[in-house]
């Protein structure tokens, strides 16, 4: 396959970036999208040019490291897969492919297509956990969980935190991520104790990081490689409303929260 790539090149967060055009002439349809970029980078290295920086790790669709806005769609044209699981057979010979990084204020560009997603980590630190006493592991099945609840919790827990939801959202909102990370705990008995405090803290941290606001458009869920449902967002909203009625205040320290 012969392809024309329009790739976003940016030296760092301080320097403005631009699109650069590259020719990829020896691409097999069986390559994954990232392998295609590897081939292009080999050529660039041979030519003595700076290779294109992009994020990747497991390359089997479960780590959440790869990103890329491909022809205007997060993780490319195929539904429910990450960029590493996208194969070049999904494109036609002679296509021009536009490749961009995730763009959002809380995702500063580190280089080229690599963005810093540690704002997600700070949202998890704000409440995406349960507090348990240390000691030996409890026996299995001591706390019964109804199967439908366990299934819903697993559906939400499938979130790999890749950030496609933020990238696709016209508002740059992280609600699908935050909601998934709250929902996989709020469906389980272990998650109940801190349920409302969690909602308040995570939403507050999300706001502090500078994410936008959900307008219930659904772009997030449409591009989510794990098909997280917008139901989780309704559930987080409900938890936050109940927390407000209970008068639960955020427990984050302002200094901690401003770590960004």
């Amino acid at each position: 396959m012969k392809l024309t790539l329009k790739v976003w090149r940016q030296k760092n967060n301080k320097t403005p970036g631009e699109f650069k055009t590259y020719q990829a002439d020896h691409i097999s349809p069986d390559m994954s999208f990232l392998e295609m970029l590897d081939v292009v980078n080999q050529d660039l290295i041979v030519k003595g040019e700076e290779p294109i920086a992009f994020d990747h790790d497991c390359r089997e669709g479960i780590c959440g490291m790869c990103s890329l806005m491909i022809n205007g769609v997060a993780h490319g044209p195929k539904a429910a897969i990450t960029t590493c699981q996208l194969h070049m057979r999904s494109f036609n010979d002679g296509d021009t492919i536009t490749i961009e990084p995730w763009r959002a204020l809380p995702f500063p560009i580190i280089k080229d297509l690599v963005v810093d997603r540690s704002s997600f980590d700070r949202i998890i630190q704000a409440g995406g956990y349960i507090s348990v006493s240390t000691g030996s592991a409890p026996d299995a099945n001591t706390i019964p969980v109804p199967k439908p609840d366990a299934d819903k919790a697993m559906d939400a827990a499938a979130c790999i935190g890749c950030g496609a939801c933020v990238a696709a959202c016209p508002n740059g909102s992280a609600m699908l991520f935050v909601a998934a990370k709250a929902a996989h705990l709020s469906f389980l008995p272990q998650g109940q104790a801190e349920r409302h405090q969690r909602a308040v803290n995570m939403v507050m941290q999300q706001d502090l990081e500078g994410f936008g606001n959900c307008t219930n458009i659904g772009e997030c869920s449409a591009v989510c490689p794990k098909e997280i449902s917008m139901d989780t967002i309704a559930r987080l909203n409900r938890d936050l409303i109940v927390a407000s009625l209970k008068g639960i205040e955020p427990t984050l320290q302002p200094a901690e929260a401003k770590a960004s």
């Binding site: 204020l105 500078g210 606001n213 307008t215």
Partner: peptide, 9 residues
């Protein structure tokens, strides 16, 4: 708030 976010980068 949303526009501040999406205009960045």
């Amino acid at each position: 708030q949303s526009q501040k976010n999406t205009f960045a980068n």
